[in-house]
Amino acid sequence: PEDEKKAKEALKRANGDEDKAKEILRKLGVDPDRAEELLRRLR
């Protein structure tokens, strides 16, 4: 869904750096736990 698209985009923008991607997602208003879960799934 929408969050998943955001997560993929964030990872791309962060050049695969998960911590940076998490930060980006947090700024986009995605719940930190949700962000973590999404990134884990994309790994």
Rank of each mutant, 00 (worst) to 15 (best):
P1Q: 14
P1K: 14
P1L: 14
P1N: 13
P1W: 15
P1T: 14
E2N: 11
E2W: 10
E2Q: 09
D3A: 08
D3R: 04
D3P: 04
D3K: 03
D3W: 14
D3H: 06
D3Q: 08
D3S: 06
E4R: 09
E4Y: 15
E4Q: 09
E4N: 07
E4V: 15
E4T: 10
K5R: 13
K5H: 12
K5I: 12
K5P: 06
K5T: 10
K5Q: 13
K6W: 15
K6N: 09
K6Q: 12
K6V: 12
K6P: 03
K6L: 15
A7P: 01
A7V: 12
A7M: 05
A7K: 01
A7Y: 05
A7G: 04
A7I: 09
A7E: 02
K8N: 07
K8C: 08
K8M: 13
K8G: 06
K8P: 01
K8T: 07
K8V: 12
K8L: 14
K8R: 14
E9K: 06
E9S: 07
E9R: 07
E9A: 09
E9Q: 08
E9V: 07
A10N: 01
A10Q: 01
A10M: 02
A10Y: 00
A10D: 01
A10L: 03
A10S: 05
L11G: 01
L11T: 02
L11R: 02
L11H: 03
K12Y: 08
K12M: 11
K12E: 13
K12Q: 12
K12A: 14
K12S: 10
K12W: 07
R13V: 12
R13F: 10
R13D: 11
R13G: 07
A14F: 05
A14V: 07
A14Q: 02
A14P: 00
N15K: 11
N15T: 04
N15A: 09
N15I: 05
N15G: 12
N15Q: 10
N15L: 11
G16R: 04
G16S: 03
G16T: 02
G16M: 05
D17Q: 06
D17H: 07
D17I: 05
D17T: 02
D17L: 05
D17G: 02
D17C: 07
D17R: 06
D17E: 05
D17N: 12
E18Q: 09
E18P: 12
E18F: 15
E18L: 14
E18W: 15
E18Y: 15
E18R: 11
E18K: 11
D19M: 13
D19P: 06
D19L: 13
D19C: 12
D19H: 12
K20P: 01
K20N: 06
A21K: 01
A21P: 00
A21Y: 06
A21F: 07
A21M: 04
A21G: 02
K22G: 05
K22Y: 12
K22M: 13
K22D: 02
K22S: 06
K22Q: 06
K22W: 07
K22A: 08
E23N: 06
E23G: 06
E23R: 07
E23F: 01
E23V: 07
E23K: 07
I24N: 03
I24C: 05
I24K: 01
I24P: 00
I24E: 08
I24S: 03
I24W: 05
L25Q: 00
L25Y: 00
L25S: 00
L25P: 00
R26A: 13
R26W: 05
R26V: 15
R26N: 09
R26S: 12
R26T: 15
R26E: 14
K27Q: 14
K27I: 10
K27M: 14
K27Y: 07
K27N: 13
K27H: 12
K27R: 12
K27V: 10
L28I: 08
L28Q: 14
L28K: 05
L28Y: 05
L28N: 08
L28S: 08
L28T: 06
G29A: 03
G29E: 02
G29V: 01
G29M: 02
G29S: 02
G29W: 00
G29H: 03
G29R: 02
V30E: 03
V30Q: 02
V30A: 02
D31E: 11
D31V: 05
D31A: 12
D31N: 10
P32N: 10
P32H: 09
P32C: 08
P32L: 12
P32D: 12
P32E: 13
P32K: 12
D33P: 05
D33Y: 07
D33H: 11
D33N: 10
D33F: 10
R34T: 13
R34N: 07
R34D: 10
R34M: 11
R34V: 15
R34H: 11
R34Y: 15
A35W: 08
A35K: 00
A35R: 01
A35G: 04
A35D: 01
E36T: 05
E36V: 04
E36L: 06
E36K: 06
E36G: 04
E36I: 05
E36D: 12
E36A: 07
E36F: 03
E37H: 05
E37M: 04
E37N: 05
E37D: 10
L38Q: 03
L38W: 04
L38S: 03
L38Y: 03
L38K: 00
L39V: 08
L39P: 00
L39H: 00
L39F: 04
L39N: 01
L39I: 15
R40N: 14
R40Q: 14
R40D: 15
R40H: 13
R40I: 11
R40W: 03
R40S: 13
R41D: 15
R41W: 09
R41H: 14
R41V: 06
L42G: 03
L42R: 02
L42N: 03
L42H: 04
L42Q: 04
L42P: 02
L42S: 04
L42V: 08
R43P: 05
R43M: 14
R43K: 12
R43H: 11
R43Y: 05
R43G: 13
R43V: 15
R43T: 13
